[in-house]
């Protein structure tokens, strides 16, 4: 059900781990729904993301989107990182099954949450950055029988 790229990132996740004294940390999702993502960012004085790490509790797609999201933001400025959408993450993975699109949303939110934390700590305002939602499942529809 997953693309080769998803499977590859799931099997060999990039940037998995923690950063001590990170510039920004964001955790989104909830255990109830079965996925939690945490992103650590190390941002230098020029606002460039020097390092990024993730930890994820979730399915194959959740792990792969976390891994891909970290790849996409690494080396970027915070301003560039804000622009990375869930669609970009999903596309970079060669697509996700429709039921797994929320995983890519979670990855986008996790990046935003870490940036928000960084901005708050440093009294900065990052253009285009909203306070992230912690739960991205609100709009899921219920199936009727």
């Amino acid at each position: 059900m997953y693309t080769e790229k998803v499977m590859e990132h799931f099997s060999n996740p990039r940037n998995m781990g923690e950063i001590e004294n990170a510039s920004g940390v964001g955790t989104v999702g909830n255990a109830k729904c079965g996925d939690i993502m945490r992103i650590y960012l190390d941002i230098d004085e020029n606002g460039i993301i020097q390092d990024v790490k993730f930890k994820t509790f979730g399915c194959g797609a959740a792990v792969a989107t976390s891994s891909m999201a970290t790849e996409l933001v690494k080396g970027k400025t915070v301003q560039e990182a804000v622009q990375i959408t869930n669609k970009a993450v999903a596309e970079a993975l060669g697509g996700l099954p429709p039921v797994k699109m929320h995983c890519s949303l979670l990855a986008e939110e996790a990046i935003h949450a870490a940036l928000w934390d960084y901005a708050e700590k440093n009294g900065l305002k990052i253009e285009g950055l909203r306070k992230p939602k912690s739960d991205v499942h609100e709009e899921e529809e219920e199936i009727e029988y």
Binding site: E18, I36, K55
Partner: peptide, 8 residues
Amino acid sequence: RKMSPLYE
């Protein structure tokens, strides 16, 4: 577990 924020 090494990958899990819950475990961390």
